[in-house]
Amino acid sequence: MGGFFKSSIGRKVAMALSAFFLMFFLIIHLTVNMTSVFSADLFNELSHFMGTNPLVQFALQPVLLFGVVFHFVLGFILEWKNKKARKVTYFKNNGAANSTWMSRNMMYSGLVILAFLVIHFADFWVHEINVKYINVEPADPTRYYHELVEKFVPIWRVVAYSVAFILLGLHLGHGFTSAFQSMGSTAGRKRALQNLGKAYAVIIPLGFIIIALYHHFNHH
């Protein structure tokens, strides 16, 4: 199989596999966040479980981190190779005549998501590591809800958050069906899966945005 992942098609398959993993993860992440709208206690409970369970902490979390880094690093490599494949660019190119904006700008939507992820990690993950391992604070299984809500108090955060998720929606608007095609399946070309892809690309980002707006307008 070694030779396979060195080929252009193998790299595409690797890209799609990491993308499927990330798309699956987003469903779980949204589900957990959504509980914060309905029950602070349930959200705290789930967060505490995720934050303390060794399986989640030492097996799933590193896999996730690897998946994210793998996806954008390979994305950069492919983009760089693709740029190299056309040294002299067109004087006039009418890309809109034959493809969608989303499909032509995966790199830019990806970069916005990446910028978001940097802030996201600084906010939650670095904080978690700090509290748990460096400046150890007494374990407080109810702190998560307030930490979450606090983040959505400044309006600039809510706006930046929403913009990032709109770009994620555009990334997924092309990416969802594209990943099937990369895996050699023509299912992404059928109406049913295209509709599922559109639904996914709208529902996931919209869900996160609604949670942000909810907490912004309901914090006490």
Binding site: R11, K12, K81, A85, S182
Partner: peptide, 21 residues
């Protein structure tokens, strides 16, 4: 595929533009 890669063609990102043109 090996020859295609060797010639320096890029990687498909499934924009679908080729099929249209």
């Amino acid at each position: 595929v090996a020859q295609m890669d060797l010639e320096g063609f890029g990687n498909c990102t499934n924009t679908g533009a080729c099929e249209i043109e």
